[in-house]
Write a protein that binds this DNA or RNA. Structure first.
Length: 412
RNA sequence: GGAGGCUUCGCCUAGUCUGGUCUAUGGCGCCGCACUGCUAAUGCGGUUUGGGGCUAUCACCCCAUCGAGGGUUCAAAUCCCUCAGCCUCCGCCA
């Protein structure tokens, strides 16, 4: 562990408790081992003995049997306690991460320039108005059928999603990622191991009857893909590009981003996920960020890259970079992609390890958004709109839209 | 939803009826060594994972681990119960 690393504030009190619990776990385990050893020795003598000798052995064995059971129970209790405390501990934070809350991020770089609509002589419409004109987005019927924060993508909107997904998968595949379609429902183990049942739990949909969770990102099924496996070091890095629906309760965001499809309960996303040796994690993190920048650049969106502050990291990330695209009608940069280095945090919880020569040790996991569809649509529509409400298709996307260069308003 | 079968240390597999001799058999793969001019072949040895002990190190020792959890018993891979997964068949839906 690097000396410069520090635990998150809320974890500091946990550490002493954890050390004490672990010591108790160790000593109860030693006691159990000793008793069990004696019991096994005795067990070998019993079948050979006869008469009084046998009776005496059985008497002693009876005593031992209950002692072993008691020691076993204590050991189990101590292990469970240690696990429970360990589960509450967040990942260690990278020393370069800015300290503070949501607003204390550092801007690492700014790419592209926001359009000057005033100079062009027109007022930009927001994505919802544009979406309605294009016949692409229908939030009213989404709300009618499923409630608020649900929506339909129709016509060119539906085609736009498919184009984005195909383009993103194509970029990821070219970069060496294995494309994956993943389950959207996962077990508590997978959810827990990925780090989503801590502070993030209230944002997760749970199906009581089946005790399954709806994933908020394919990061979950991808991280758990190699659960309880030992991967040969020579096979690393393993890179997967997952495509799945994502479900988020968005608890506690009432009144926030209520217009349009910027913040919704269900959306589709292409996600990059890497398994690498721990010493490779930082370099891989930089690569994931590069792929995200390449993606946004190809869509001709102006964006900035931020280093997310400690308080906004979540339990599993040691460092997180977000790419925020410029949203003209909001006059600010908003998160479109996010890449996290989880180091060994998820791998330890999920039992994903690597065989490195004779050694078996945990590896590192990293994830990064390539394309979260609705937000990308928001950014595309607003940034590439024209005065008449039509929207220019960036060149990179045209092959995936049948060569179309322009999305045009339809009659209502 | 119903009936049956299965799950053993990378893969395959013996062992389960009849509890203790299982410190889990054998094959394949892999690693090391020997032999061979090289390769191949052959021979010998090693090869689950986790926790703990002892060590400068290598080694060695103890405990757990036979899908998971519980129970019976002095003693469980083996007997009983619950659950999960896989397979086969039936029903239902597409």
């Amino acid at each position: 562990m690097r000396a410069s690393q520090r635990a998150r504030g809320e974890d500091v009190g946990l550490v002493d408790e954890l050390l004490a619990a672990d010591e108790r776990r160790r000593s109860s385990s030693v006691r159990f081992d000793e008793l069990r050893s004696e019991q096994k020795q005795l067990g070998k003598l019993v079948p050979k003995a006869t008469g009084d000798e046998k009776a005496e052995l059985l008497r002693r064995a009876g005593e031992l049997s209950s002692a072993v059971k008691a020691a076993d129970a204590e050991q189990n209790e101590a292990v469970a306690r240690t696990q429970e405390l360990l589960g509450r501990l967040g990942n260690l934070v990278h020393p370069d991460v800015p300290v503070g809350g949501e607003d204390d991020f550092t801007v690492l770089e700014t790419i592209g320039t926001p359009r000057d609509f005033a100079a062009e002589g027109f007022e930009p419409k927001d994505h919802l108005d544009l979406g309605r004109l294009l016949g692409a987005i229908d939030v009213e019927r989404g709300a009618k059928v499923s409630g608020s924060r649900f929506y339909y993508l129709s016509g060119v909107g539906a085609l736009l999603e498919l184009a984005l997904v195909n383009a993103a998968i194509a970029q990821a595949t070219a970069a060496g990622f294995t494309p994956m379609l993943t389950p959207a429902l996962v077990t508590p183990r997978a959810m827990e191991g990925t780090g989503f049942l801590g502070q993030a739990a209230q944002d997760v949909y749970h199906l009581e009857k089946d005790d399954l969770y709806l994933v908020g990102t394919s990061e979950v099924p991808l991280a758990a893909y190699h659960m309880d496996e030992i991967v040969d070091a020579g096979k690393l890095p393993l890179r997967y590009a997952g495509f799945s629906p994502c479900f988020r309760r968005e608890a506690g965001t009432y009144g926030k981003d209520t217009r349009g499809i910027f913040r919704v309960h269900q959306f589709d996303k292409v996600e990059m996920f890497s398994f690498v040796a721990p010493e490779e994690a930082e370099a891989e993190h930089a690569r994931l960020l590069e792929w995200e920048k390449q993606w946004l650049t190809s869509l001709e969106l102006p964006f900035q890259v931020i280093d997310v502050a400690t308080g906004d990291l979540g339990a599993s990330a040691s460092r997180k970079f977000d790419c925020e695209a410029w949203i003209p009608t909001q006059g600010k940069y908003r998160e479109l992609t996010s890449t996290s280095n989880c180091d060994e945090f998820q791998a330890r919880r999920l039992g994903v390890r690597m065989r490195d020569g004779k050694q078996v040790r945990p590896l590192a996991t990293l994830n990064g958004t390539l394309c979260a569809v609705p937000r990308t649509i928001v950014a595309l529509l607003e940034n590439h709109q024209r005065p008449d409400g039509s929207v220019r298709v960036p060149e990179a996307l045209r092959p995936y839209l049948g060569g179309r260069e322009l999305l045009e308003p339809v009659a209502p």
